[in-house]
Nucleic acid binder design. Structure first.
Lengths: 153, 153
DNA sequence: CCTGAAATACTGATTCT
DNA sequence: AGAATCAGTATTTCAGG
């Protein structure tokens, strides 16, 4: 017997996949337009969306904000290895700085890998200085993004 | 005279910021509801949204899909350094594999940093094997995500 | 999953400040 | 220029099958 605690995997049919694709392109697409695209009525599509939300496939509807337009012209990837006893403090500091827009805790030598948005390269050092007592850091500047965050499948 | 080619920085007032916040929480919020939240009429809010789209602040409306529910229970961060003469081929291979949902080209020793979704740890080696002639790779498994991709500001 | 109808939301032209 | 009002369409959301 399989483990049914939290491990149920959802399988999407062709119509669900298409709906997800369409909504990834434009999450504000009206249900009536979606329904035309998949050859169904609006209430049916609405039900499917509700189901996809309930099952957790659709975790949310978000806007994508372009940080460049707001003056954040640089992205850095910062890897951090906490100094002895500083792990909790390190993580708390990362979380508290809004310019860190994402951070993963990982296996291996580096403990944290974070994505940092900057208005200017001169903003980098003041931020990294705040970590000098907490971690060894290694910073790489993003030159381009060959794959922009995309939908799996 | 300032440079007006591509470098104009947009400044948001309080209402724009609030609209962006609300739409980040739920990009399908009806304009009428947004208008109630910010104390304006629906057409005014609609104009603001159009302006934010035109200026490029709002780059798009997306859904957030939960990969775990679809069976992708592991995330890996893969750093890659191309072997001599293999840079183009390496980038092309990364782009061609849908499980790489994001990839940045960066300064420093590692040339690429990519995010890889996996159904199972046993799927890792077959994918990395495809890179054996193209790059030295370094893989870290994500244990947790202290900061989930969030809005700047 | 569909039909049909009621409630709600969107869109634009126009006016006002 | 940006915001309000109002009227005409379009969309969403239930009911019932």
């Amino acid at each position: 017997m399989q483990n049914h605690l939290k491990k149920e995997i959802i399988h999407l049919d062709g119509i669900d996949s298409r709906l997800i694709e369409l909504l990834y392109e434009n999450a504000r697409t009206p249900v009536t337009e979606l329904s035309r695209a998949v050859g169904m009525t609006a209430p049916s599509v609405n039900e499917r969306l509700k189901r996809l939300e309930e099952k957790g496939v659709i975790a949310g509807y978000r806007i994508e904000v372009n940080p460049t337009v707001l003056g954040y012209s640089l992205i850095a990837i910062v890897r951090m290895r906490p100094l002895p006893g500083k792990l909790k403090a390190l993580e708390a500091l990362i979380v508290s700085i809004p310019e860190f827009v994402e951070c993963d805790k990982v296996t291996g030598e580096d403990c944290y890998i974070a994505r940092l948005y900057l208005k200017d390269i001169s903003d980098l050092d003041p931020i990294l200085d705040r970590f000098s007592e907490l971690a060894d850091t290694n910073t790489a500047i993003v030159k381009s993004t060959p794959v922009k965050r995309r939908l799996l499948v």
